[in-house]
Design a protein around this nucleic acid. Sequence first.
DNA 1: ACCATAATCAACATAGCGTTGGAAAACAAC
DNA 2: GTTGTTTTCCAACGCTATGTTGATTATGGT
Lengths: 198, 198
Amino acid sequence: MAKKKIDRRVRYTKDVLKEALILLMADNHISKISVKKICEIADVNRSTFYAHYENQYDLLSHIERQTIQDIHTFVAKERSRQITLHTMLCLFLEYAAQNAKLFRVLLNERSDSAFSDEVIRLVKELALVETHLEFKTKPRVVEYIQLFSITGSLRVIEKWLEDGMIESIDEVADLLLLLFNHRVLKEETHYLRGLRDG
Amino acid sequence: MAKKKIDRRVRYTKDVLKEALILLMADNHISKISVKKICEIADVNRSTFYAHYENQYDLLSHIERQTIQDIHTFVAKERSRQITLHTMLCLFLEYAAQNAKLFRVLLNERSDSAFSDEVIRLVKELALVETHLEFKTKPRVVEYIQLFSITGSLRVIEKWLEDGMIESIDEVADLLLLLFNHRVLKEETHYLRGLRDG
DNA sequence: ACCATAATCAACATAGCGTTGGAAAACAAC
DNA sequence: GTTGTTTTCCAACGCTATGTTGATTATGGT
């Protein structure tokens, strides 16, 4: 790990700029956010901004990549000790909940930005390697099914965060696993019964 | 129907502006598209643009609303004569395929724009009224399930258009119905068998 | 042919962009 | 602390797109 020590000033500048952008993106579309405004909020000189980023999109892109990286290392660490998919999902949801503001912004910003696509890639890499084997169906159809499931899941998580995380993490994880996997499950009836009674 | 006859000049102007924007949006994110550029492509004076729209987003918004309106009337017409959901879906896919360029742009532009949300609202209104009854579960969970299904379906359609509509409309309709409905189907095995052999 | 309406054109002030060079401040190392 | 380096700040620059205006030309409907 080539951990170069970064000048405190640089770290501070980058941090406040990221904070400012996330703050602004809660209310405005990124296209409506000017570099000038970001710098005003962050109380950073505009030329300093340009010393680090090209524009607001570049800044967002860096935030996304850093978040993806964080998720990746987080997941890798947890996966080393053999936990259930349910537990893993719960950990992830907790992580998302703790960074709700950030995740809402990133998940909402689907077009152009690579965040959702990266998450999709990540999930595929982790949990869906066996799908093709289980199905033994056309690769393209598998692609469709995966895309369907992951996109739907992310949207559900987004709504969950949006509405203020009303349901418990455990509950959401259950629901997602059901929605995500029930096509490979032979029996889903017991869970459906639970939902009906809920 | 208060069908006011519109000056040919106005219709022409609006049409070429819409065309130009869709054209540009195939390659650029809307935030990177200037009013000036749109007018250049459309060969329309910039002040004429401002006589009709506020900015590029306003123009896009109008395109979206018009498309939603078209879909709505289209669906309403077809629904009056009792057709199966499969047939309906096929008709819709055909419609999307014929306007592939437009639909790809609109589906891809999720954030900010209301298009996907409107489609979601429309689908709910049409086909999912009975979901709640069938499930008899918490309204919020029903919301999640619907959101999951519709979002996933739209993304699948988007990919299908993106990749050049390799699969037949009938095939895609089958797949979507499976993904969309299989939680209420008692037996999906016969279809899964079909996929495995495919 | 007439008049209303729409599109064009030129011009304007404004605002944000992206860059620059030099002064001031904060940093790390000694 | 002193020193040398790095980063930020500041003021200014030209540039481009914006949004608006008023006058002129062209086109539409009847």
